[in-house]
Design a binder for these strands. Sequence first.
DNA 1: ATTTCTTATGACACCGATGTCATGACACCG
DNA 2: CGGTGTCATGACATCGGTGTCATAAGAAAT
Lengths: 363, 363
Amino acid sequence: MATIYDVAKRAGVSPKTVSRVLNGDAPVSQKTREAVSAAMTALGYVPSHAARSMKSHRSGLIGLITGAISNADEVAAPAGLPELFIVQGVQHVIESSRKTLLISDTGGRLDRVPALVRTFQEHRVEGILYVSDFHKPLDVSLDCQGIRKVLVNCFDDAGTPAVIPDDEGGQYALTKSVVAAGHKRIAYLTLAPGMEATRLRMKGFCKALAEAGISHDPALVMATDLYGSPGEHQLIWDTLDKFFTLDEPPTAICCGNDRLAMAVYGILRKRGIAVPEQVSVVGYDDHRLISETLYPALTTAELPYSAMGARAARLLLDLLADPLAREPDAPILVSGQVRQRSSLVAPNLDQNNVISLKGRTEI
Amino acid sequence: MATIYDVAKRAGVSPKTVSRVLNGDAPVSQKTREAVSAAMTALGYVPSHAARSMKSHRSGLIGLITGAISNADEVAAPAGLPELFIVQGVQHVIESSRKTLLISDTGGRLDRVPALVRTFQEHRVEGILYVSDFHKPLDVSLDCQGIRKVLVNCFDDAGTPAVIPDDEGGQYALTKSVVAAGHKRIAYLTLAPGMEATRLRMKGFCKALAEAGISHDPALVMATDLYGSPGEHQLIWDTLDKFFTLDEPPTAICCGNDRLAMAVYGILRKRGIAVPEQVSVVGYDDHRLISETLYPALTTAELPYSAMGARAARLLLDLLADPLAREPDAPILVSGQVRQRSSLVAPNLDQNNVISLKGRTEI
DNA sequence: ATTTCTTATGACACCGATGTCATGACACCG
DNA sequence: CGGTGTCATGACATCGGTGTCATAAGAAAT
């Protein structure tokens, strides 16, 4: 590989002059510049990042730690959407800032994080982004030896800058849409209890109902997310069974994520209940592969992963640009849109103001 | 950041001795080793990758170019499965070889590839993997200036080493399973014409039928993949309509990918046709988010992206380890499994040996 | 005791850039 | 015509490691 000395010799100038042509940081005569450029082209010269960063003490690298890649075959992890979208958002921002993103994967094993951090340190990354697979408290000790870091999709109680989804607001807005469509009996198939998203979204769900003057009926709320477990379909089946043997069955079903909604579609139809004619269904995540392809297309709330990644990357770059910049003192919430599609319509009620399940046929 | 000189001074030895402790490449007395280790710990010393690679001329970096990350919101690109799974397979192999993977994303713009290659060159990557979003001829000029490269999910006619999926074999095996279940009238909703996968899988499909003595009926083959187009559902609807008004309707439907199968499920049920009781459905890709969650679970052929990534990474490492290693002279085919799930059962025929569509109710 | 051979360690140069400082060549000024 | 300033360029040191070679300190052999 050609070096700056080779170029200098060929162009008949000093290495320093070649450096000046490269960086344009000092005047170089037109003639010299052309000679140097010609030599660079002829030799296929590309400057060495290692040599540069050694002298400048600036690597231009940003490290990102994720489990997205190795987790990808459990693509529907608890919260539903692969955190890869976060990486996408990060990538866009970092790349347009002329820095290079170094992505490392935990391979699903948190005990490997220290080794990844060490690799980042060897490369003298200027900042680190830690991306969690779903919204939760940080579950790994992340000692970065003074390197600036930003958490994405997780948070700690040490005040580390963090960017998280606005789960409460998202479910609130989505539920309001369901209410606005005229529904009063709204069931909710939640994600696993104990998850941050479950708690926050329930809060948003209840808030929207309360504002609409609809009393909260515990019989309409069930946790059903069991990804990977063979019993999941049975559980959803039984849960729906309970709902539809109530005196006043639900006219709309909120699902903890789009994947659950996909399962619900299948089971409802198996039981001869038409979506959306007899029951409306909404999801969460806006996992477009699902929400756009399901028939009918799914109304859902966007989990703004890409925007979160972009926000986190921008935050990190800002912190790096100004060493005195104050870190935000609370996690930054990023909100998503409600995506209206055809699975949500006005309820179809009979004269008793109860869902009309006539014409139902088990197929 | 502490340097090897700081450590040396603190331990009262020369930098070279510290280097020896770090690399263990020459004998160091027990006492010295301990003093040096203590100093390293006290100073939080981490060696500089830049300085090391400069001297050794070995960066330990492998570059990977993909559109997977920025493409992620078009997660169901033509061939169906996000090529991210390829990256996952690569990551596993590279990481266990003590090298570091540098991932760059095209942002969907092929004209940015040269810039990415240049960045890789600056970092002196030892090899480059180019990952295509679906199986096709290489569609970008990839001038790596002598850096070893391996193509994944694509191929060129210049003999560049490549790893691609065995589309023909996959569809052949899958179709054989459908035949083995007893089906003789098998419809095929193909991917877009012109795609490598479409051509090869059709070949496998026909081969399996021919071996079973089933004549190929063109009326049962239609291209329906229109991802992102609002007319897709209508097209599938109309296509299914044609199938089921034939004198001998199909008893099984092969779909070009799992996403199409998901759409077909919805439409069939809307039309009161039960899966799998009246019609069996199979997909392609084994996109587990879909195939495991659909109700009933989907029989499908695995598109072995992860294995392809691993294979390509291993090939690249082998080529790097032995500069004289001969490149394979044809693309390496990687085969996937057939995943048997509940959407495929024996056909339900009436006394005329025709599919029984009794009990059908439009819901 | 002297020579020989390990073993442990250090001095020094070098990898490929760039920052600092010096200098040569001109143009412009009075 | 000499003095001053600007422009273009080069010499040299340096960043943080490691390869090469030299050498001091013991251990083993004579």
